[in-house]
């Protein structure tokens, strides 16, 4: 099962290496990882998507908690949350078929961020399934490049 683990860490050099090393050293697989500053610049949030059964996840959580620079560990399996993936997709498309892409973008609330003579680049964000469905629909046109961020997630507010 996939879990989204969200950690608040000290914003210091070496912390990312420590966490990545912990996953590698203990044989945990990372599906995705996103890192960014929080509202407090002294702290960063790392959002890790990790696969494993409950006992593996329990170890992941506990081992993360043991790292001195990790301040808080939350497993979003236990709470209501909103998650987002962001992707930039470069598609080969002839000018006469651009309209089709625009229509798809409208339905998926994608955003065209660059248009070239032969290629068009779209920004799409949303839950993972939506992003994947969108990429799937673009495949027949010929995808040249996909760049995806790691998952980010936030607990729903009160």
């Amino acid at each position: 099962m996939r879990h989204i683990i969200s950690t608040i860490v000290e914003n210091k050099p070496g912390v990312l290496a420590h966490i990545a090393g912990l996953f590698a050293g203990r044989g945990f697989n990372i599906d995705s990882l996103a890192v960014g500053e929080t509202e407090d610049p002294a702290r960063s949030r790392m959002t890790v998507v990790v696969r494993g059964d409950d006992s593996v996840l329990e170890q992941v959580r506990k081992q993360l908690g043991k790292i001195i620079d990790v301040i808080k560990v939350t497993d979003f399996s236990d709470v209501e949350f909103v998650e987002r993936d962001l992707a930039l997709v470069k598609v080969a498309v002839k000018p006469e078929r651009r309209r089709e892409i625009f229509e798809l973008c409208e339905v998926f609330r994608g955003k065209v961020v660059d248009i070239g003579a032969k290629q068009i680049t779209i920004e799409i964000s949303g839950p993972e399934k939506k992003v994947e469905a969108f990429i799937e629909l673009l495949k027949p046109y010929g995808i040249r490049e996909v760049v995806r961020t790691g998952r980010i997630a936030i607990a729903r507010g009160d």
């Binding site: 050099p13 070496g14 420590h18 090393g21």
Partner: peptide
């Protein structure tokens, strides 16, 4: 050395 010993120390500082 902080990188080398990270998995085998409780913590380290440079």
């Amino acid at each position: 050395i902080t990188g080398i010993t990270r998995p085998i120390t409780k913590h380290s500082y440079l």
